[in-house]
Design a binder for these strands. Structure first.
Lengths: 109, 109
DNA sequence: AGCCACTACTCAGCGCTACTATGTACCGGT
DNA sequence: ACCGGTACATAGTAGCGCTGAGTAGTGGCT
């Protein structure tokens, strides 16, 4: 993956996943597949699982184990109240940053 | 500083500084002051100087030492050809990310 | 003279996140 | 028996921004 993208994903990947989870419970493998379909073709599986462990530990998601038709049981993650609040803050932070950068890109300075 | 902002700045702060430097040579203290005026009130001085050392080492900027009216001599940084190229790639990367996030925010998924 | 504020740069050590690389495990088709 | 697809896990690494401290020069105030 490009080094720039790797660095830029820090902080944003978490928001992306939480946003995807909004009203849409999903499991790790599914999230990875979705990310790839969105153009994040080089995001490693391990990265996603590590992120899921983290947001679970931080209490942003609820987890439910479900048997799979194929392969090992799935861990289905869904956004809880704390996660929604955290996601709101994420959008605020990102909104500020995006606005500043958009200004820089268009105006020059 | 908010933890989310800290993480999100990784990768983007560099681009912000490089963008500021476009056609506008500046020194560390000046850049710090400008960042604060842009709303990045909590970015530490040390962070900026470390970033400047890094982009200099990576050959993205040229440096010129100039005496100051007040205080120690200034190190004035200006974007060079490699820096401009790097900045272009930054905008491409950021553009992709911003588009994906904007979709997520508005559409839902 | 002594003190303080502002200007200006430096550096060691830390925390966090994404990546790399590898391993485990279940199932179906051939 | 083997392979490919599904599904999860984890130890170790690299990179970036932050913390906290230090060094130095200038000018103003008392």
């Amino acid at each position: 993956m490009g080094k720039q993208m790797t660095e830029m994903l820090k902080g944003t990947l978490e928001g992306i996943v939480l946003a995807f989870l909004t009203g849409n419970p999903a499991y790790g493998y599914e999230i990875t597949t979705w990310l790839r379909s969105q153009g994040f073709t080089e995001i490693a599986e391990g990265t996603v699982y590590a992120l899921l462990v983290r947001i679970e530990k931080n209490g942003l998601v609820d987890v439910e184990k479900r048997p799979s038709e194929k392969g090992p049981p799935r861990k289905v993650y869904s956004l809880n109240a704390d996660g929604e609040k955290y996601l709101e803050e994420f959008w605020t932070t990102w909104g500020f940053l995006a606005e500043r950068l958009e200004n820089l890109r268009t105006e020059g300075k």
